[in-house]
Amino acid sequence: MGILIVDDSKDSRELLGRLLKNAGYRDVIGEASADDAFATLGLSTDGDLEEHGGRFDLILMDVIMPGIDGIEACRRIRGDTHLQDIPIVMVTALDEEGTLQLAFAAGAVDYVTKPINKTELLARVSSVLQLKYERDRRKSREKELLEALGQLRHANEILRRLSAIDGLTGLANRRNFDEFIEREWRRAVRDKKPISIIMMDIDHFKAYNDHYGHQGGDDCLKKVASVIAETVKRPADLASRYGGEEFVVVLPETEIKGAAELAERLRMEVEAMGNPHEHSSASKVVTISVGVASLIPERGMAHSELVELADKALYAAKRDGRNRVQVA
């Protein structure tokens, strides 16, 4: 609770200092000129604020001083980013009222008149300090709130990402797929561009699960998902877990040829993984059946039509012996 008195009159400094100390303000410092006050406050220095201005909660500033007067001193202190929150109370004779206006314009918050009246001085000092503490408290609360808001935003971002991701495989989840295809479908309609999807299903996954257990099944899903994630590299595409052992890739602005090539690559990569599957009619290793479909959608068409086409192609691939790609 520091108070800085700036007054060229020794008698005035001593009087103010004594009255304030007697009223319980322990840290009261007097300076005889604006320049000395600037040095004590660390004005325009990059020093640690706590060592300088940070210790002061109030400045009592004489108006008429040789050299830099109280008004100019007030203006300079208020213009310093580190010091601008320290309230300045001007100390002035009543017949200096004209200068009072200048003082307020320079940023003073209040004034006490000379000769000093103890009651008036202590009342003003107390109310200005009260205001300063309230404002400091509010500022620190605002800071805390801002920090909390930042944490909340961060948490929301994590939540948003988590809610879009399939917890087991790390691929996009079904909801994310629904939103993505809806958006890309509309864009394809608008731009009259093709959009393709690849539907995949792990061959004989139920048998795999029964034989290797649920943990084994989960591991298999993770491995296949990781092959899909590594193979689907274009940032514009979205690979997601469609449900159970089914995966789907959406390829905006992609014609059937490109989609079929990627589908075949996916099939090959999964097979090349060489993950044993003793209960598959298709192979000795884990394989996928793949259905591919592509459309240049027109207004009035639903994206479910594209999904249905790919689904039918996937069914055909299974029917024809699995571990193969069928183009719709």
């Binding site: 008698d11 009087l15 000379k114 000769p115």
Partner: peptide, 11 residues
């Protein structure tokens, strides 16, 4: 004179 004026009454 100015400083006397400012401080006298306060004391």
């Amino acid at each position: 004179g100015h400083n006397m004026k400012g401080s006298g009454g306060g004391y």
